[in-house]
Amino acid sequence: MSTQKLRKERIDRGIKVRSDGLYALMSWRELSYLTLPRFILIAGLLALPFLIPGMYWQRVISIVCIYAILALSFDFLAHYVGLVSLGGAFFIGTGGYIAGILNSYFSIPPVFTIPLAAILGGAVCTLFILPCLPLKGVYFAIITLMYPLFMARVIEAFDIFGGTDGIVGIDSFSSAFVEQYFVIGMLLIFLFGIRRLVTTDRGLIFTAIMDNDQAVKASGINITQYKALAVFIASAMGCLGGACLTHIYMWSGISQFALDFSILPIAATVIGGAGTLVGPIIGCLILVPVSEFLRDFGTLRIVFYASILVGFILFRSDGIMVFGQRKYEQFERWTKI
């Protein structure tokens, strides 16, 4: 490269430091370089229903997306707000039951039950979690792990909402096509919405709370308020997923509070790459289908993904996404010799 070019690049770097992201507009090559992975992800997700044959595997797409939404909410809470919530099942179950109750007791169509379940469920979950927001680390993790168990036991013990049988006879989506595109669309909206949220200046407050809550308090900011907001966002996402699940299976029951919904998203996040937001989705795209393949072997699938989880925690704790990103960024400086 000529000195001129090198010099230009050096100036560019300086600008990049100040305004990360803007520099991409300087050339089509860089623009496409930056947008390509995003484009592949969006196009790939949107094309999935066409590429995958068979009713069964099309159903799996929806399940993948619901898990991905859940994993996204876990990733957001854990790595951008610093609240490690092991209560994915709590969100799914609450959303699922609310959608089920609204639909079967009040016969509200799914178009309304799903957003209602997201908002109401988010509010309910936030209310439950509100008193434990000052808790840290292990304590918060344990209490969120306990909530879904508690809800399941309460429903069982009081025999409410259909008890162990659950609520049956819930409307399904009008067609499989609508179902799949709805969850895929929601997933994409949440993904880019959260990405946008955490990079805005206001979103920085969440990260700041995670980094160092004392300094945020000393800055005169009410951290409980912000934490509650974050929990509301995350739980509303989870509840929306739960509501979709209820309408897909036309049933809501205690198994929606099962630990599966707490553990699999975490496994997906660890595998995909913690704190990358896209990583959890990639993790789900890998884990859920594989565990569907193993469904015939019963509980072996749990053994399988738990083993993967342990393996990734031990040997590749930064996840696939970070690895992929590093590899991809090596292309940027690729010149022919």
Binding site: D201, R202, L204, I205, A208, V216, S219, G220, I221
Partner: peptide
């Protein structure tokens, strides 16, 4: 930027 978000 973070303290500048505070009410005060």
């Amino acid at each position: 930027v973070i303290p500048l978000f505070s009410p005060r």
